[in-house]
């Protein structure tokens, strides 16, 4: 059996881990978004690998990839919108300075 599928899945897992690390450890909103992008990239690899190695006849798999790419772009657009608003109001997008959001 070819190890390609496994390699792709492990790549996805590693990207997820790096992304989680980034999203949790960074203090800047934009850097946190980069972590989220990496998590989504991990999902992307998995989806492509599943389509290619398990169900190459079912194009709903590729469709799913397109949707995830859309989500990545949307996450950026809305995230930057929030970042601009936050920067206008408080002069920074540092998470440590956003304590008032704590419940």
């Amino acid at each position: 059996m070819s190890p390609d599928l496994l390699i792709a899945l492990l790549t996805g897992a590693a990207l997820l881990g790096v992304g989680i690390y980034g999203a949790l450890s960074q203090t800047n909103l934009v850097m946190i978004m980069m972590g989220v992008e990496l998590i989504l990239a991990g999902a992307l690899v998995n989806l492509v690998a599943f389509w290619r190695f398990l169900h190459p006849d079912n194009y709903a798999g590729q469709m799913f990839v397109l949707i995830v790419m859309t989500v990545m772009a949307l996450e950026m657009a809305v995230g930057f919108g929030v970042a601009i608003a936050r920067f206008r109001a408080r002069g920074s997008v540092e998470m440590e300075e956003a304590r008032e959001l704590q419940g």
Partner: peptide, 29 residues
């Protein structure tokens, strides 16, 4: 964060390793 990242990776990698994915299709369209 490092702990969460490592645990997340290991968890997903474990799922990937210990699931029987069935036969891999070699040729793509």
């Amino acid at each position: 964060s490092i702990l969460a990242g490592v645990v997340g990776t290991l968890f997903i990698a474990g799922i990937a390793l210990f699931t029987s994915w069935g036969a891999v299709i070699a040729t793509a369209p």
